[in-house]
Computed example of a mutant assay.
Amino acid sequence: MEFEHLGARPRISSGAVVAPSAVISGDVTIGDGCQILHGAVITAEGSPIVLGENVIVMENALVRASSVHAARIGSHSLVGPMASVAGATIADQVFLASGTRVFNGARVGEGSEVRVNAVVHLRTVLPARSVVPIGWVAVGDPVEILAPDQHERIWELQHDLDFPGYVFGLDRDTPDLMVQLTERYGAALARHRHDRRLD
C-alpha cells in the first residue's frame, strides 16, 4: 500500500518489488532491485527515506524517518524480520539481523553486521566492518560494544546521548515527561489523518 503523506509521494523503481501488505508512506525513494516483503512499513514522518539498490526489507520490519532525522539504507543491505531502523544511516552491504534496533542519528558503516536482537543506540557511530554480537548493545562515538548484562555502563554512555532531548526535544528531568512526550508526538503522528492512499 502506498500513501501520500505531508504532500510527498513514494518513488519506487520499476525494478523493485513491494509486497501488497507492505506500507510505503511519504517521501520514500526505493531503488532498483529492492524487495520489500509482507508487513514491512517504510514511513517518512517529515524527512526523507532513501533505499539504494538491491535492499531487502523483510517481513514486519520498520524503517522510519522523523521530522528531523532522515533514514538511508545503502545498496545490497538487508533489514531482517522485525528489525527497526529509525532516523539512521546504514551504509552499503550491511546485515541487520532479525529483531535488531538502530536508533536516531546512528551510522552503521559499510559491511557491518548487527546480529539477532542487537541494538545500535542513538547517535552511535559503528565503523565499517563492525560486528555487534547477538543481543549486545553498541553505544557512543567512539563506539563501545557491550554485553546486555553491562547495564550500568550502557546507561552511563546512553545518558549523555540524551534520548528524550535528541529525539523528542524534551528535557529528561521534566516532571511530566511522558505527558508532554505523548501529547507532542501524538499531535505529530495525527498528521496521518490527511494521508491519501495511492494504489
Rank of each mutant, 00 (worst) to 15 (best):
N60A: 03
I90R: 10
V167P: 01
G15F: 06
A97R: 13
V116S: 06
V102N: 00
R193P: 06
R196G: 03
A16S: 07
I24A: 00
S47H: 08
S21T: 14
I12G: 01
V114I: 11
A22V: 05
R197Q: 13
L146D: 07
R101C: 05
L122M: 08
G111L: 08
L126H: 05
L37D: 10
G33D: 03
L170C: 01
G186F: 07
M58S: 12
Q180E: 14
I36L: 10
S112G: 09
A190R: 15
A187D: 08
G111H: 15
V143E: 08
G135A: 12
Q158C: 00
R115L: 15
D160H: 13
A106F: 00
A22M: 03
S67G: 12
D32K: 06
E144M: 08
S98W: 04
L62E: 08
G80Q: 06
N60F: 06
H5D: 00
A22F: 01
V143D: 05
D160T: 04
M1G: 11
S25D: 01
I90F: 03
P164Y: 14
E156Y: 07
H69I: 07
S67T: 13
S130T: 10
E59H: 15
L37G: 02
S66G: 14
L51V: 03
V94F: 14
H192L: 09
A70Q: 09
V120D: 05
D32H: 06
L157W: 04
A65H: 03
V94C: 14
G52F: 09
A147P: 07
A70D: 02
P133F: 13
T174M: 10
V23C: 10
E152D: 15
G87P: 06
R64F: 07
R191W: 04
A86F: 12
I30M: 02
S130K: 00
I154C: 03
E144N: 04
S112T: 09
H69Q: 02
I30N: 01
G169A: 05
S13T: 05
A61W: 00
F168G: 02
R196T: 11
L6Y: 03
G46R: 11
F95V: 12
P175S: 09
R129L: 09
S77H: 02
G111C: 07
R11M: 02
E152R: 14
W155D: 05
R184E: 04
T100C: 10
